[in-house]
Simulated assay, not measured.
Amino acid sequence: MTLLPSLYISHGSPMTALQPGQVGGRLAELAASLPRPRAIVIASAHWPSAQPQVGGHAQPPTIHDFGGFPEPLYQIQYPAPGAPMLANQVQQLLSSAGLPAQVDALRGLDHGAWVPLRFLYPDASIPVVPLSLQPHLGPSHQLALGRALAPLREQGVLLVGSGSITHNLHDWRNYQDGKEAPYVRPFIGWIEERLAADDVEALLDYRRQAPFAERAHPTDEHLQPLHFAIGAAGEGALGAQRIDAGIDMGMLAMDIYRFDGAGA
């Protein structure tokens, strides 16, 4: 079976579902370039937990985990099936790697999962298993989660981390007039350079080394899915490719990355 890449996707605001900007087209193009996966495991910034949780619902509900948005947004459904057997396999792989995990048979798909997936695979026919992250444990932990699951890429499973390459919602009112936040391009440029250099250590230490890290990510739960995707690329060269999907609202960079590393 063809080795799938791992992906990091900036999912943006929930409004991306109605106003996709560049990211909708970029994700459609990306899906068209990939072998069709048999299933997807997606780690979203919007499912934090104390320890790893794996969604084992047979038909994960669409979670509208936000408030104050236009009514049409709440009508969107992404009725992809789940994959309980794959969820159990994910749980076993994580536990075998020293990352004790539990299966949550009730968990649905939050907007960090269904917003990008409906542009990747709008027919919602590919089974999806959501995975929680543990932001309090730091980037190295998310890297370990990804590495534990890297063998699934050889089994036709697409491993996805969903977050935002920059995410400072304190600034959302400040850049509505077409201006860009001055920290966005230096930060995303540094990320691109370090990924191209396979400099995983620097990326794990990004809060100290990257320019404007604290402005780009006052909290880092939206960047840690990148570390999951890096881990899922496996050992050795990452094979990182950046897909530029623009900057939303002047401060949310919508970068997408694929990692064609050799896997486990």
Score class of each variant (00 low, 15 high):
Leu3Gly: 03
Ser6Tyr: 06
Leu7Asn: 01
Leu7Gln: 05
Tyr8Ala: 05
His11Ala: 03
Thr16Ala: 02
Thr16Asn: 05
Thr16Arg: 07
Val23Asp: 07
Arg26Val: 15
Arg26Lys: 10
Glu29His: 09
Ala31Leu: 08
Pro35Arg: 10
Arg38Pro: 01
Arg38Thr: 13
Ala43Val: 09
Ala45Asp: 03
His46Met: 05
Trp47Glu: 02
Pro48Ser: 10
Ser49Ala: 15
Gln51Tyr: 11
Val54Thr: 09
Gly56Thr: 07
Ala58Met: 04
Gln59Ile: 00
Gln59Tyr: 02
Pro61His: 08
Thr62Val: 12
Thr62Tyr: 13
Phe69Ile: 00
Tyr78Met: 07
Pro79Leu: 06
Pro81Phe: 02
Gly82Glu: 06
Gln89Thr: 13
Val90Trp: 10
Leu93Pro: 03
Ala97Ser: 15
Gly98Pro: 00
Pro100Tyr: 01
Val103His: 00
Val103Ala: 03
Asp104Arg: 03
Arg107Gln: 14
Gly108Ala: 02
Gly108Trp: 07
Gly108Asp: 01
Asp110Phe: 11
Gly112Arg: 06
Gly112Val: 08
Ala113Tyr: 01
Phe119Gly: 01
Leu120Glu: 01
Tyr121Trp: 15
Pro122Val: 04
Asp123Gln: 15
Ala124Asn: 04
Ser125Gln: 15
Ile126Tyr: 03
Val128Phe: 01
Pro130Ile: 13
Pro139Arg: 11
Ala144Asn: 14
Pro151Lys: 07
Glu154Trp: 03
Glu154Ser: 14
Leu159Glu: 03
Gly161Trp: 14
Gly161Val: 08
Gly161Cys: 12
Ile165Pro: 00
His167Leu: 13
His167Gln: 14
Asn168Cys: 11
His170Val: 00
His170Lys: 13
His170Glu: 09
Arg173His: 13
Gln176Val: 12
Lys179Leu: 14
Pro182Arg: 06
Tyr183Asn: 07
Val184Asn: 10
Arg185Lys: 14
Gly189Lys: 12
Trp190Asn: 08
Trp190Gln: 06
Ile191Phe: 15
Ala197Pro: 13
Ala197Phe: 12
Asp198Glu: 04
Leu203Thr: 08
Phe212Asp: 14
Glu214Asn: 13
His217Lys: 13
Pro218Met: 06
Glu221Leu: 05
His222Pro: 08
His222Ala: 06
Leu226Gly: 09
Ile230Cys: 12
Gly231Lys: 13
Gly231Tyr: 08
Ala232Glu: 00
Gly234Phe: 08
Gly236Ala: 04
Leu238Glu: 04
Gln241Pro: 00
Asp244Asn: 14
Ala245Cys: 13
Gly246Phe: 04
Ile247Glu: 08
Asp248His: 11
Gly250Arg: 06
Ala253Cys: 11
Ile256Ser: 00
Arg258Lys: 09
Ala262Trp: 12
Gly263Ile: 06
Ala264Asp: 15
